[in-house]
């Protein structure tokens, strides 16, 4: 395989998540309802178009041809993703990623600067694989990129972020 030189590469194969589908559907339905009911027509129409476009994009990312079907942890700091449409690329995991026992939200950044989230609720991976990925992310220490978009975040939120610390830095 193209990443085959990493003998101990770790492979995770997310499946479409029902929890994520329900959450996104509720979120979009509530937003659409709010826009239609609360705003005047001249403002609601462009916003509806924007929301529908964004919803379609999210659908493609999580359930359509751009869905990530395989995530491979290569050498430390190197991650590889395979999309359903066959595209494969190397990415890094940004500091904005969230690691929690019920939810993994990895902010992936590729070489061109494209950023995209990989959201993995508990039902997106087998329980053991979800745990393995969590441990791997926690033990990798500092995130692969140094940006900190949530510098002002609360302490409560910060506990779910990838850990920092010299112990984990290669």
């Amino acid at each position: 395989m193209w990443y085959g030189k990493f003998e101990s590469a770790r492979v995770f194969e997310p499946r479409p998540s029902r929890q994520l589908l329900i959450s996104l559907t509720l979120l979009y339905a509530a937003t659409l309802a709010l826009v239609v009911l609360m705003l005047p027509l001249w403002l609601a129409l462009p916003l509806l178009g924007l929301l529908l476009w964004r919803g379609g994009r999210d659908w493609q990312c999580h359930y359509g041809h751009r869905r990530i079907v395989r995530l491979v942890a290569g050498a430390p700091g190197r991650w590889f993703v395979h999309q359903a449409d066959g595209i494969r690329q190397e990415v890094t995991v940004a500091a904005a990623s969230v690691v929690h026992s019920r939810l993994l939200m990895l902010m992936l950044v590729n070489a061109n600067g494209w950023r995209g989230p990989l959201v993995l609720p508990r039902d997106a991976l087998a329980a053991e694989a979800h745990r393995r990925l969590r441990v791997l992310l926690w033990c990798r220490g500092e995130p692969d990129t140094q940006e900190d978009e949530f510098a002002g975040e609360t302490r409560w939120w910060r506990q779910f972020r990838l850990p920092r610390g010299s112990a984990g830095r290669e």
């Binding site: 926690w138 506990q159 850990p163 920092r164 610390g165 112990a167």
Partner: peptide, 18 residues
């Protein structure tokens, strides 16, 4: 300690954690 949310108490411990 192991997941980096707490500093090791001493250098020997830090080495094992690493």
């Amino acid at each position: 300690l192991l997941f980096g949310r707490m500093a090791p108490p001493d250098t020997e411990c830090a080495d094992v954690v690493r």
